[in-house]
Simulated scan of single mutants.
Amino acid sequence: MKKKWLAVIPTIMLVATPLTMGVSTVEAATAPKVSAHKVISKAETRPTLRIGSRSSYVKALQQSLKDAKYVISVDGIFGMGTQNIVRDFQNDHNLFTDGIVGPATWAALDQNKIDRKQFTYAQADQVATNILGDHFLFASDQVLRQDVDGSLYYKLYAKNNGVTYKVFKKFIEPVT
């Protein structure tokens, strides 16, 4: 009898847990789960890309870079232009700058897509306007970058005073 209860109790707990949290078992089972582990796992399943690569993966890479506001054509051919943009991306995200797209670069591209939704260029422009005033006119490439400590920022150039600023979520600092 005790052995039977040992099998029944965990089953009851498994079924009851979502209900106590206000979620049905069907919703709990079908709810999408996003985690850093999933981003890394996805990055590790894609091939390493370099000069000479031609594939749908190269096209996906180029589209991801374009979506991240890098100026690049989407043709599925990993040439010098793509390599240079990959190097720019790697440099902007504190990765080893070799122009080769491996798991670390794929993961950074995936994370950048998530980060751009959480901290948009419009928000950065508003932070700069709130701090410096609305009399400033800004120009930017709208590329979301990552500081050495992992903080996300956009570079904005204030045309009025000729100063380039790093604009973070809550503050700005001039680029020296």
Rank of each mutant, 00 (worst) to 15 (best):
M1I: 07
K2S: 04
L6S: 12
V8S: 06
I9G: 00
T11D: 07
L19H: 11
L19E: 07
T25L: 15
V26K: 15
E27N: 15
T30A: 06
T30N: 14
P32G: 00
P32E: 02
K33P: 00
I40K: 09
K42P: 00
K42F: 10
A43P: 10
E44R: 15
T45N: 10
R46A: 11
P47K: 08
R50F: 11
I51Q: 13
G52R: 10
V58I: 07
V58K: 12
A60P: 03
L61V: 05
Q62N: 06
Q63N: 07
L65M: 12
D67V: 12
D67I: 11
A68K: 04
Y70V: 11
V71K: 15
I72M: 05
S73A: 08
S73I: 04
S73G: 07
S73F: 03
D75F: 07
G76S: 13
I77D: 14
I77E: 11
Q83K: 15
N84W: 10
I85R: 13
I85K: 15
V86H: 10
F89L: 05
D92E: 01
H93P: 04
H93M: 11
H93A: 05
F96W: 08
T97E: 13
I100R: 13
G102L: 06
P103I: 09
P103N: 09
T105K: 00
W106R: 01
A108M: 15
D110Y: 12
D110N: 10
D110P: 00
D110M: 06
N112L: 04
K113C: 01
D115F: 01
R116G: 02
F119W: 04
T120P: 09
Y121D: 01
A122S: 14
Q123I: 08
A124Y: 02
A124I: 00
D125Y: 10
Q126T: 13
G133W: 01
G133M: 00
F136A: 09
F136Q: 12
A139F: 05
S140M: 10
D141F: 07
Q142D: 07
Q142M: 14
L144E: 03
R145W: 11
Q146H: 01
Q146R: 03
Q146F: 02
V148A: 05
D149V: 02
D149P: 05
G150R: 00
S151Q: 06
Y153R: 01
Y154F: 15
L156H: 02
Y157I: 05
Y157P: 10
Y157M: 08
Y157H: 15
A158N: 05
N160W: 06
T164Q: 13
V167C: 06
V167M: 07
F168W: 07
F168N: 01
K169H: 15
K170R: 14
F171W: 08
T176A: 07
